[in-house]
Design a protein around this nucleic acid. Structure first.
Length: 494
RNA sequence: GGUCGGGUGGCCGAGUGGCUAGGCAGAGGUCUGCAAAACCUUGUACAGCGGUUCGAAUCCGCUUCCGACCUCCA
C-alpha cells in the first residue's frame, strides 16, 4: 500500500523507484576515508547518512552487502607525494602504521556516532593484484596508454567512443582542456590534460610501491574503488555513494575505468551526500574552517559555546536531508540538543503509559497516521528531517496522557504497543539514535536521587519552602533538573 | 571564466501549484507554594522584478546574492 522506495539518482538527476538488480539483495559501495589524518566531521556526516540508508534498506528486508573501503595508498598531494607516505614521514612511522593508526581512529569515531560497520571494509593496499589486473584490461581494451612506466587513462578516446565521460558530473571534455591546470605531476606525460593516471611509476624515494608489468609503482587514486567494487559486488551493482565533492573527478573516473575494463556502467543508482558547512562555509580539512568531532564533544573550540554529545550531533545531522547542505552553528546545535532531549524523554514516558481500553482509542487513528507517515517519508529518498518532524508530533500526545491532560483511554493498549514498537524501530534501528543514559543513571546516583527527592517531598509537605528550594537550586547547579509533576517528582540531567 | 545547487518567519530546517512542516528562541495562558518541566494558544515566512495560471513561495524568464565542483577533500 505504501509508496515504494524512491532514490534520487545523481546520474539521471531525478528520483527513481528503487528496483534492485537481484530481487531481495542490495549491493552498495560507499567511498570511505583516506586514512592519513584524524577523521573530520564532514566525513562523519556522509557516513552517518549512508548508515541510515543502510539501516533502512535492511529494515525493508533487503539483504544488503555494504562495502565501504579504506584508502591507504595512491592518493597524491599537489606536490606528487602520496598522502600516506607524507603522513608516515611526518610521524616517522611506517606507512602501514599510519594507515592503522587512523583507521583505528576512524573506527572509534564511527562507533561513537553509532554507525554500523559495513559488511566488508576492503583496503586499497590489500587489492594491488586486482588493480593491476584492471589496468591490464583497460590497456587491452585500448583505453589507456603507457608512458615511461606509468599508465594513463585515455579520456579523449573514451569520451569519443562511449559518450559517457562527463555524464555524471556534467562535464564536457573540451572544457576540461581549457580548465585543467598544467602544473600537475607528470602533466607532460599525458596526451590530454583530462587524462589521469591509473598506474604511476614510483620514484626511488617513494616508500609505497609494488611490482607491475609496467614499472615498480603504485595504483592511481580512482582505481581502487573500481577494482574493489567489482571484486565484491560484481561488474554491476545497485548503489554507489559518496560525498558530493567526489563526483568529479573521482566518481567520473571510476565510471570510466569500469566501463573501460568491462564495458558496463558499474552502479545503477549514484547517491551523493551534500557538504557539511560551518557558519555558512564548507567544512574542509584544507582551509581550516573545521572542528574535529572530539572538539565538538568537549566544546574545546572557538566555534561552539559548549560540548555536544555524539547523539545530539547525529540527531542534528539527520534533521537536514542528506542532499542538502547542513550548516553547523552553535545556535542550531543548541536547538538540536533541546529537541533531542524532548524526543527521548517522550520516548521514555511512552514506556510508562498504560491504557484501560484494548482498542478504539480517540488518538489511535492519528497516531497510526503519523507512524505510516514516517515510513512514507523514508521511502521518499530517505527524508529523515521530515520523518523526525513527524516523530515530534507524537510528543504532545504522549506527554498529555502522561500528565493526565487527556484521558488514558485516548490511546488503546493495542495502539500503545504498536507505537512503542514503531518508535523503537524508527528511533533506534533506522535512525540509529540511542538514548544517552550515563552510568549514573543506573548506579547509586539513582538511589541517591530517590532519597533526595523523598526528603524534598517531606519538606514540601511541611511547607518548608526554604529547604525544598535549596535542594532544587543546589541540584540545578549540578545540572540536575527537578520536575514536579502530578504523579510525583522526576529528575534528569540538563 | 565554465558546470551545478541554492536563497523559506529571530536561528536551524522540510515541503509544495490552492490544504498547519518540525525543532529552537519569543509572546500569552493552564498547572505550581514559587519555579522548572509539561500542556494549550500565538506569529501567518518563502531574495527582487516580470510572465504563465482561476490560483505560485512552489512552473518560466530576467536581476541579484550565496555556496559547491572545475586542484587533495565525505
Amino acid at each position: 500500500m505504501d509508496a515504494p522506495l524512491q532514490i534520487y539518482n545523481s546520474l539521471t538527476r531525478q528520483k527513481e523507484v528503487f528496483t534492485p538488480l537481484h530481487a531481495g539483495h542490495v549491493g552498495m559501495y560507499v567511498c570511505g576515508p583516506t586514512v592519513y589524518n584524524d577523521v573530520h566531521l564532514g566525513n562523519c556526516r556522509t557516513f552517518i547518512s549512508f548508515d541510515v540508508i543502510y539501516r533502512y534498506l535492511t529494515y525493508l528486508g533487503y539483504k544488503v552487502r555494504y562495502i565501504r573501503n579504506i584508502t591507504d595508498v595512491g592518493h597524491l598531494l599537489d606536490d606528487g607525494e602520496d598522502r600516506m607516505s607524507k603522513g608516515a614521514r611526518l610521524d616517522n612511522l611506517e606507512p602501514m602504521e599510519v594507515a592503522q593508526k587512523y583507521t583505528n581512529n576512524f573506527h572509534d569515531m564511527m562507533r561513537t556516532f553509532n554507525v554500523l560497520p559495513p559488511s566488508i571494509e576492503p583496503r586499497a593496499t590489500g587489492h594491488i593484484p586486482e588493480q593491476i589486473e584492471m589496468v591490464q584490461q583497460i590497456l587491452d581494451n585500448g583505453y589507456a596508454y603507457i608512458k615511461n612506466g606509468s599508465v594513463y587513462f585515455d579520456t579523449v578516446k573514451f569520451a569519443e567512443e562511449t559518450k559517457e565521460y562527463g555524464k555524471l558530473s556534467g562535464r564536457v571534455i573540451e572544457e576540461l582542456i581549457a580548465e585543467s591546470r598544467d602544473n600537475l605531476k607528470n602533466q607532460d606525460e599525458k596526451n590530454h590534460p583530462s587524462d589521469f593516471a591509473i598506474w604511476m611509476k614510483a620514484s626511488d624515494e617513494h616508500i609505497m610501491k609494488w611490482n607491475s608489468p609496467w614499472s615498480v609503482g603504485f595504483p592511481g587514486w580512482h582505481l581502487e574503488c573500481s577494482a574493489m567494487s567489482t571484486k565484491y559486488l560484481g561488474k554491476q551493482f545497485d548503489i554507489h555513494g559518496g560525498g558530493n565533492d567526489l563526483k568529479f573527478p573521482h566518481h567520473e573516473n571510476e565510471i570510466a575505468q569500469n566501463m573501460g575494463s568491462c564495458g558496463c556502467q558499474p552502479a545503477k543508482y549514484w547517491m551523493h551526500t551534500n557538504m557539511l558547512l560551518m557558519n555558512g562555509k564548507k567544512m574542509s580539512k584544507s582551509d581550516g574552517n573545521t572542528i574535529s568531532p572530539s572538539e565538538l564533544f568537549t566544546g574545546d573550540s572557538p566555534h561552539v559555546s559548549k560540548g555536544y554529545s555524539p547523539m545530539v550531533v547525529r540527531f542534528f545531522m539527520l534533521q537536514s536531508h542528506y542532499r542538502s547542505t547542513n550548516d553547523l552553528t552553535d545556535e542550531a546545535l543548541q536547538a538540536a540538543e533541546k529537541g533531542f532531549k524532548r524526543l527521548t524523554e517522550a520516548f521514555e514516558a511512552l514506556h510508562k503509559l498504560h491504557s484501560p481500553v484494548t482498542e478504539g482509542g480517540a488518538e489511535d487513528e492519528n497516531i497510526s497516521k503519523i507512524i505510516h507517515g514516517v515510513f512514507e517519508d523514508m521511502n521518499d529518498d530517505f527524508n529523515t528531517p521530515k520523518a523526525i518532524a513527524r516523530l515530534f508530533e507524537l510528543v504532545p500526545v504522549i506527554n498529555s496522557v502522561k500528565d493526565g491532560k487527556i484521558p488514558p483511554e485516548s490511546i488503546s493498549q493495542k495502539m500503545l504497543e504498536e507505537l512503542k514498537n514503531a518508535f523503537h524501530v524508527i528511533f533506534f534501528d533506522i535512525l540509529g539514535l540511542k538514548t544517552e543514559e550515563s552510568d549514573a543513571d543506573k548506579g547509586y546516583v539513582k538511589g541517591l536521587m530517590e532519597l533526595i527527592i523523598r526528603l524534598r517531598q517531606q519538606a514540601r509537605a511541611n511547607k518548608d519552602w526554604a529547604t525544598s528550594d535549596t535542594i532544587r537550586d543546589s541540584l540545578n547547579a549540578l545540572n540536575i533538573q527537578i520536575k514536579d509533576g502530578k504523579e510525583g517528582t522526576e529528575w534528569s540531567f540538563k
